[in-house]
């Protein structure tokens, strides 16, 4: 896959869709293209976050370790981005991402990503929007879970 194809891919991701193509190309150029076979970890829960990944092809599971073993919380596929939370808030990885098929991804290093955010505020706003979206989704899920617990206790 060539740089220009990667640019096409990036453009399809909501987070980056608002960026001018020249900047997307720069982002693609400064990132590494990485490949994984099925069953490999992109990163592990608890690691220090040093990069975000844009999935160019393939699928992966998002796993969280619980006292009862690993729990799958989500699935990621082509055109999605994973691992951005850890590099935004400097926290350890909140989950493990394990590939389920052969996977190709663009690895965006933390420094490059942050630099891009600083250079392009519209991207930062977009990130905020995506995160807020996720938060509201998580909140509603949490509310649902709580009410279920309350009902069960009652």
């Amino acid at each position: 896959m060539l740089l220009k194809d990667e640019v096409e891919m990036l453009r399809r991701i909501t987070l980056f869709s608002g960026l001018p193509p020249a900047k997307l190309k720069l982002l693609a150029f400064t990132s590494d293209r990485v490949m994984y076979s099925a069953g490999e970890d992109l990163f592990n829960q608890g690691d220090i976050g040093d990069a975000a990944y844009v999935i160019l092809s393939g699928n992966a599971d998002v796993l969280v370790s619980t006292p009862n073993g690993q729990l799958k919380v989500a699935e990621v596929e082509q055109n999605s981005i994973v691992g951005e939370i850890a590099i935004l808030c400097n926290t350890p990885r909140t989950a493990t991402v394990k590939t389920t098929t052969a996977l190709e991804a663009l690895r965006i290093r933390k420094d490059d990503f942050l630099k891009l955010l600083a250079d392009f505020p519209e991207m930062a706003v977009e990130i905020m929007r995506v995160l807020a979206d996720r938060l509201s989704q998580t909140t509603s899920e949490l509310t649902e879970a709580r009410s279920r617990v309350q009902r069960a206790e009652a």
């Binding site: 896959m1 060539l2 740089l3 220009k4 990667e6 693609a28 150029f29 293209r33």
Partner: peptide, 9 residues
């Protein structure tokens, strides 16, 4: 130039 790294095709 390194193709897999620079990917200009």
């Amino acid at each position: 130039y390194i193709e897999p790294r620079h990917r200009f095709g």
